[in-house]
Simulated scan of single mutants.
Amino acid sequence: MNQPLADLSVATCSPAQLRALIESRRAVRRFTNEPVPEAVIRDCLELAVLAPNSCNLQPWSFQVIREPALLERLHPVCMGQHAARAPLIIAVLARPDTWRQACANVIDYWPEAEVPERIRHFYRKTAPFQYNQGWCGWRGLFKRQLVRLLGLRRALMRTPNSQAQMSLWAVKSTALAAENLMLAFQSHGYATCPMEGFDEVRLRRVLNLPRQAIPIMLLAVGKPGEKAVYNPRLRFPLEQHVEWL
Rank of each mutant, 00 (worst) to 15 (best):
N180P: 07
F62I: 06
Q101I: 08
F122E: 04
R26T: 12
Y230R: 15
Y109L: 15
F122H: 05
Q101H: 07
W110R: 02
C103M: 07
M79Q: 12
N53F: 14
A94E: 05
N53H: 12
L234G: 05
R100L: 11
S9Y: 11
Q186K: 15
L21I: 05
C55S: 15
E200Q: 12
P224Y: 14
S187K: 10
P15G: 12
P87K: 03
N56M: 15
V49S: 06
Y131K: 02
R202W: 10
Q81Y: 03
P52S: 13
L141V: 12
V92Y: 01
P128F: 01
E117R: 09
P4E: 06
R148D: 03
A113K: 05
V171E: 07
A170L: 00
R73P: 10
S187L: 13
R211F: 06
V106P: 06
A164Q: 15
R202D: 08
N180G: 10
H82L: 13
C193E: 01
L21Y: 04
G80E: 14
V64R: 01
L176M: 15
S14W: 13
P96Q: 07
V36P: 04
P37R: 11
A170W: 07
R205I: 11
G222H: 08
E196C: 09
S162L: 14
E117K: 09
A20H: 13
I65M: 02
L93E: 06
A86Y: 07
V77P: 04
Q130L: 11
R154M: 12
G222E: 06
H75D: 02
R85G: 07
R158S: 00
Q212S: 11
V92E: 08
E72W: 08
V64P: 03
E67P: 08
R158W: 12
P15W: 00
L47A: 14
L152G: 06
Q101P: 04
L18F: 06
G189W: 14
A178M: 04
E46C: 13
W60R: 07
V36F: 13
W99P: 00
S24P: 03
M217P: 03
N53E: 08
V221S: 00
V77H: 03
L181R: 04
R153E: 04
K143V: 07
L57Q: 04
R19I: 10
F129V: 05
P215L: 13
H75Y: 06
Y131G: 01
E239L: 02
H75Q: 14
M157K: 14
L245A: 10
H241F: 15
I89P: 08
L45F: 00
L218S: 02
E243R: 12
Q165H: 13
I41H: 06
R30T: 07
R154L: 11
T159A: 09
L219K: 00
L88T: 01
S9T: 15
R124Y: 00
A94R: 02
F129P: 04
T12D: 09
C78A: 05
R205V: 11
